[in-house]
């Protein structure tokens, strides 16, 4: 069994990799909000946004097409918006099982798909050029509560340990699941469900016990309920200026969209 739990981060030392993570977080958030707020029918704006993101991908040496393809993996989630096709009033273009698809509906659905694809690209740009641990301190210095940051950090730290534990459990099951000749192995469905249930339970118990030991280890080193962290490095003005470039591009695209294509 192979878990698709993996880090998105791609090591490198491009300009994008080296940019202050605080700036990257802020720029990414603004880009995503900007993408989502683009007027739905401003088709040329989508193309320009894509060029902007693709340019950033090239800057980060991530590959224009690779970023586009990876972001495509998230598209099935936006299928939830498919009902827009039927519920938006407009001229009929198609009938599916007696349901009317309107032209306006189709356009809105396409806009949702494009927007989510672009927004995922923006998020991926951040994730692929920023180590997770840098994201954590960036979030902390952007005033996300210290406790929340600590929880995300612990989750990140132990997710992989947990995955290894799950893999060990499954290997142990596989090793003991030989099948006699001419017999289907694994027993009945009910039996197998019980085994799987036991494994989940065992995984939960192990995690629970680990959490107690980790807490003890934190207490032993002076933790009293308040998380402390080192001060982040100072923010440099060069980073702020660099961060301003994509935001300026976004502003221009939005102005064009509002003026001509809305």
């Amino acid at each position: 069994m192979n878990f698709s739990l993996q880090e998105r981060y791609r090591a490198g030392d491009s300009l994008l990799h080296r940019l202050d993570p605080r700036i990257k977080v802020v720029v990414t958030l603004v880009l995503i909000v900007g993408i989502v707020m683009t007027p739905s029918a401003a088709w040329p704006a989508y193309a320009l946004l894509w060029v902007l993101l693709g340019g950033l991908a090239l800057l980060g040496r991530l590959g224009f097409w690779r970023l586009a393809r990876t972001a495509g993996l998230a598209l099935p989630f936006s299928l939830a918006a498919a009902t827009l096709m039927f519920t938006t009033p407009g001229n009929e273009v198609l009938r599916v099982f007696g349901l009317v698809v309107s032209d306006a509906g189709l356009a809105r659905f396409a806009a949702v798909l494009l927007k989510s694809w672009l927004a995922v690209q923006a998020a991926l740009l951040l994730a692929m050029t920023t180590p997770f641990t840098d994201l954590l301190w960036a979030l902390a210095s952007l005033r996300l509560p210290q406790t929340l940051v600590a929880i995300i950090g612990l989750m990140y730290r132990y997710l992989f340990t947990l995955r290894d534990e799950a893999e060990r459990l499954m290997r142990a099951r596989a090793a003991r699941s030989g099948s006699a000749a001419n017999h289907r192995s694994g027993g009945s469905l009910g039996w197998r469900a019980r085994v799987a249930g036991g494994m989940v339970g065992s995984l939960f118990l192990r995690s629970y016990e680990r959490s107690e030991r980790v807490y003890a280890a934190m207490l032993a080193r002076g933790y009293t309920g308040r998380m402390r962290a080192l001060d982040p490095p100072p923010l440099r003005w060069q980073a702020v200026v660099l961060g301003g470039v994509p935001l300026a591009a976004l502003a221009i695209i939005q102005l064009l969209a509002a003026r001509w294509w809305a």
């Binding site: 954590l136 980790v214 003890a216 002076g222 402390r228």
Partner: peptide, 30 residues
């Protein structure tokens, strides 16, 4: 707790921070 350094049997319990540096800094910070 500042005087006594306790090293747990399983280092996965002791190293709870994402990064090595943060883990080593945890005690002195607290």
């Amino acid at each position: 707790r500042a005087w006594v350094g306790l090293v747990f049997q399983n280092p996965d319990d002791q190293l709870f921070s994402p990064r090595v540096y943060q883990d080593v800094a945890f005690g002195p910070l607290h």
